[in-house]
Design a protein around this nucleic acid. Sequence first.
DNA 1: GGCTTACCGTAACTTAAGTCACATAGCTAA
DNA 2: TTAGCTATGTGACTTAAGTTACGGTAAGCC
Lengths: 201, 201
Amino acid sequence: MQPLLISDSLLVKLKSIGSMRRMAADAVLMNEDDYIQAIPIVLNGSIKVMRTDDDGKEILLYYIKPGESCVMSFLGATCNERSKIKAIVDEPAEILMLPISKAVELIRSAPEWIEFIFQLYNRRFEELLDVINAIAFQKVDERLWELLRKKSEMNKSKELAVTHQQVADELGTAREVVSRLLKQLEKSKKITLSRNKITIL
Amino acid sequence: MQPLLISDSLLVKLKSIGSMRRMAADAVLMNEDDYIQAIPIVLNGSIKVMRTDDDGKEILLYYIKPGESCVMSFLGATCNERSKIKAIVDEPAEILMLPISKAVELIRSAPEWIEFIFQLYNRRFEELLDVINAIAFQKVDERLWELLRKKSEMNKSKELAVTHQQVADELGTAREVVSRLLKQLEKSKKITLSRNKITIL
DNA sequence: GGCTTACCGTAACTTAAGTCACATAGCTAA
DNA sequence: TTAGCTATGTGACTTAAGTTACGGTAAGCC
């Protein structure tokens, strides 16, 4: 996947328009069914985007990384729709909040802005397709292993500070299932387990 | 869901740019990994968009209906990427094929075109989220029943001319499973079954 | 230290779904 | 009309995943 870093010139422009906001881990940036008030651009840290079920179950869709935005919010906002997803701070983040009216104006004045949004839409689209492939065609043990690797790559660390419950939530399954499968991975020497920590070997 | 019919003025403009193409049912408009040569706008009929697995399994993502387009193709095309999905004609269709260069030009010259694309992206995004919800949180019997109702609504007919195998493919499951669940639906008086036909009561 | 809480391990069981095997039924073309 | 194909019905079995239940253990706190 390409970097898709937002261009410096665009970023400067956006900064002059929006307001900065710092958010701690696990803070909820947006909840399902919220009205969308602003477009968030992530400058540091990362945001976890989840889809939730009516009865509380949820599943990880993708991460928003620095230089990216929550595209769902873009069109949702212009149509005054409610959010279809839940966004939670994963790593403590600095987020640039763009008022919607300004973001819409930008479409006229900044062609790079359109370009940026299109690219982002496309990337998110592909990520959703990946999620669909995963849950439709893969078994949980594969998905688990891929999730661990993705997390490790994201944090640039072999040690993941997560509980089994958190992993289970991201996969949309039960904690016991995850514990069982993690144990298998440990037996096959791919990871080691300790409390609140999974180490990839 | 709103109609999102393409505006007349935009349609006239597009028709002057693209070329018409008629396609019979089951014709393949686009295959996974194809390079994208043109942007299709569906004028009549409908297109079925599927995601396929490496080992042949597939699952229905959504339908493209008249006045809509395959947005995946849009950005994919501008980036010279390969298609991530497979598009098959469902009901015999008339399709307007827009050369990519022209479609890109339009972004400058026709603001309604951008608007159109954004709206479409958004709709497709939501549909993918629905698919994710369905496969992550629903059981196959529910998904089956919803698919039947959707098809019935789409064709404006209580009689569906499909085989169990076709339904199974769209749900990404096995024929036997579908036969079994259809039988249950028949027993609970929601449908009647006959060869190549399912009738919703 | 002792208490509490959150986390983890695991056995036992249930259930949904996938798979296999084969029987039968309906259509169609020679 | 009958052979042959495709579609359907169904029982029996396997497997993955979800559920229940409970015991153990590390961490944090008074």
